[in-house]
């Protein structure tokens, strides 16, 4: 049962992802295809974000930040940072010095990745829709089979 509760969200997200993928490959309508791509990608975003969630945590916006200038920096330079980071985090999780001061935050890294992915997604969409508009102007249709038919006719006439 615990397993079910802990993995239920993945199954739903996978179902959503596959719904999007199904729309892309099953439909012959170019606009609906792009909607499908959007669904597929948005669901992948959900996969990333749901793996970044930490139970009982709050958003990764630091609550207690030493006032600017008064911070006791553990590292002044990047080279020092190399030396301190593993000590603080990887090697000793229960380190004496906890810079987060006991507050639990969700994992920010997937958020950053998905911000990038969302932007890439809308860029693809814009180019795709621009192409659809031109295809419609050139062929008078945005259905794949009708376009194929038009090209086939030309091919037959040519040969």
């Amino acid at each position: 049962m615990d397993f079910f509760v802990g993995h239920f969200n993945y199954w739903v997200i996978i179902t959503l992802m596959m719904t999007g993928l199904y729309v892309v490959i099953s439909t012959g309508n170019l606009v609906k295809k792009l909607v499908g791509i959007g669904l597929f990608q948005t669901s992948v975003f959900q996969l990333y974000i749901s793996l970044s969630k930490v139970r009982g945590a709050q958003p990764p916006i630091l609550e207690k930040l030493p006032k600017y200038g008064s911070a006791e920096k553990t590292s002044q330079t990047v080279t020092e940072l190399t030396a301190t980071i593993p000590q603080v985090t990887a090697l000793d999780p229960a380190s004496v010095y906890d810079p987060l001061m006991g507050v639990v935050y969700s994992n920010p890294l997937p958020h950053v990745l998905i911000l990038t992915a969302i932007v890439v997604g809308v860029a693809t969409l814009a180019v795709g829709l621009a192409l659809v508009v031109r295809i419609r102007e050139a062929y008078g249709t945005i259905e794949e089979d009708a376009i194929d038919e038009a090209e086939y006719k030309i091919e037959v006439n040519a040969s």
């Binding site: 990764p60 630091l62 911070a71 940072l81 603080v88 810079p99 987060l100 920010p108």
Partner: peptide
């Protein structure tokens, strides 16, 4: 790591 390193 990011959470902790960002502070400093």
């Amino acid at each position: 790591m990011y959470l902790k390193a960002t502070i400093t």
